[in-house]
Amino acid sequence: MNIFVLTGAGISAASGLGTFRDKDGLWTHFDPMKLATPEAFARDPNEVHAFYNMRRRNLIEAEPNAAHHALARLEAGLGARGGRLFLCTQNIDDLHERAGSQQVTHMHGELLKARCVQCNAVTLWHEDLSIETPCLSCGCAGGLRPHVVWFGELPLFMDAIYDAMLDADLFVAIGTSGSVYPAAGFVSEARGHGIRTCEINLEPSDNARRFDERRYGPASEAIPAWVKDVLTA
């Protein structure tokens, strides 16, 4: 059995990482147009760096929760049966990897990496960034930015994502709002190709009616229960 799993901010909430569009989410406290666009970075890179430095420090202190660990077990369990888990995340954290997932596709980039706009080099980065920080590859200062996809930019790895989706027997969306495209459109794409769909979320997403199966509850409880059902079926 091949399963395509899409994860969003809800899976990392129990690890202390904020969601974005809930009533107390990040975008209720911060203006994304001032912090998460190429134009914002060009206008005030110091402010953008300060925001992502805060988030980077928060991520380094966080730990994966039971939901992350359950998906790592699912990957191993499916592989042992000759199947495959394609784990695609909208999250820019590394909690899936820290929980033991071996293959993770980060369609919105990774917070613990920096990208140089001068030479395009991508580097692992756990420290604060500033406009004075030189690129380790080309030596230029002022060109490093978080390796994340901002509003107005194209998500990463889309060809591989669609190929994996068409190879799946089941599409599962976990902890997503169902409002951010193109990810919000994945369920319709899957249904259009006759792939069974499932939503696991704290509450119904914006596109919940598009799913064949729906399970609701905290991710740290709902995901381990679902993974157990899959692996014991």
Rank of each mutant, 00 (worst) to 15 (best):
1 M>H: 04
4 F>M: 05
5 V>D: 01
7 T>Q: 09
9 A>T: 11
9 A>E: 10
9 A>N: 13
10 G>A: 14
12 S>C: 12
13 A>M: 05
14 A>K: 11
17 L>R: 10
18 G>A: 15
18 G>I: 08
22 D>H: 01
23 K>D: 01
23 K>W: 04
24 D>W: 02
27 W>N: 06
27 W>V: 00
29 H>C: 04
31 D>Q: 12
31 D>P: 08
31 D>G: 10
32 P>K: 09
32 P>A: 09
33 M>P: 00
34 K>C: 07
34 K>G: 07
36 A>W: 02
38 P>V: 05
40 A>K: 05
44 D>V: 03
45 P>F: 03
48 V>K: 01
50 A>R: 13
50 A>I: 02
53 N>D: 01
55 R>H: 10
56 R>T: 04
57 R>P: 04
61 E>R: 14
61 E>I: 06
63 E>N: 04
64 P>M: 10
64 P>H: 11
64 P>F: 09
66 A>T: 12
67 A>F: 07
68 H>W: 09
71 L>Q: 09
71 L>Y: 04
79 G>Q: 13
81 R>I: 04
82 G>V: 05
82 G>W: 06
86 F>Q: 03
86 F>Y: 09
87 L>Q: 07
87 L>F: 08
89 T>A: 14
89 T>R: 13
90 Q>V: 15
90 Q>A: 14
91 N>P: 09
92 I>N: 06
93 D>N: 12
94 D>R: 11
96 H>R: 06
97 E>R: 14
98 R>C: 09
100 G>F: 04
103 Q>C: 02
105 T>N: 01
105 T>W: 00
107 M>Y: 00
107 M>P: 00
110 E>T: 02
112 L>M: 08
113 K>C: 10
114 A>V: 02
116 C>K: 00
119 C>I: 00
119 C>W: 03
123 T>V: 12
124 L>F: 07
125 W>Y: 12
125 W>I: 02
128 D>C: 13
128 D>S: 14
130 S>P: 07
132 E>H: 09
133 T>I: 06
135 C>M: 10
136 L>Y: 05
137 S>V: 11
141 A>L: 03
143 G>M: 12
144 L>P: 04
146 P>M: 15
146 P>S: 15
147 H>I: 12
148 V>E: 12
149 V>Q: 10
151 F>M: 13
152 G>C: 02
153 E>Y: 09
158 M>G: 01
161 I>T: 09
162 Y>D: 06
162 Y>I: 03
165 M>I: 03
167 D>H: 06
172 V>P: 02
173 A>I: 11
173 A>P: 08
174 I>N: 07
177 S>G: 12
177 S>E: 13
182 P>Y: 05
184 A>F: 06
185 G>T: 08
189 E>S: 13
191 R>I: 04
194 G>V: 03
196 R>S: 13
197 T>H: 14
199 E>V: 06
200 I>Q: 09
202 L>W: 15
205 S>R: 13
205 S>N: 11
206 D>P: 00
208 A>C: 08
209 R>A: 14
210 R>G: 04
213 E>G: 01
213 E>Y: 02
218 P>K: 11
218 P>R: 11
220 S>M: 00
222 A>K: 01
223 I>D: 00
227 V>F: 02
227 V>M: 08
231 L>Q: 02
232 T>M: 05
